[in-house]
């Protein structure tokens, strides 16, 4: 049985802001179903009373002083990798048409 159908693939792709062709939807549906079918084996594990681990070396909150420090980069340098810019600003496509 497929773990994920074509509609779900399209939904997930939409959430992740990926545009897929019909052919890609088909390909990923098969591949993602195989992978999800495999990873489901973790659901067999008894994890009653087990705490989840997100951080392995036992750190909890790590604080730093909330202090500003100057950047030694100029505005031009910071924008050097920006594809579209104008007058020292990043240029963005229209949000509303």
């Amino acid at each position: 049985m497929s773990k994920i159908d074509k509609e779900k693939v399209k939904e997930v792709a939409y959430l992740a802001r990926l545009e897929l062709t019909e052919k890609e939807v088909e390909k990923f549906q098969g591949e993602l179903s195989d992978i999800l079918g495999y990873v489901e084996t973790i659901q067999k594990v008894d994890t009653k009373d087990v705490e989840p681990t997100a951080q392995v070396t036992g750190l909890t909150d790590v604080w730093r002083v909330d202090k500003k420090s100057p950047s030694n980069l100029s505005r031009d340098e910071i924008l050097a990798n920006t594809p579209e810019k104008q007058d020292g600003y990043i240029k963005v496509k229209p949000v509303l048409e």
Binding site: V39, Q43, V45, P52, T53
Partner: peptide, 15 residues
């Protein structure tokens, strides 16, 4: 819950 939360718990067991 079925995937991410469960995986984080199995991670504890592996550790």
């Amino acid at each position: 819950d079925a995937y991410y939360e469960q995986a984080m718990k199995v991670r504890t067991l592996i550790k």
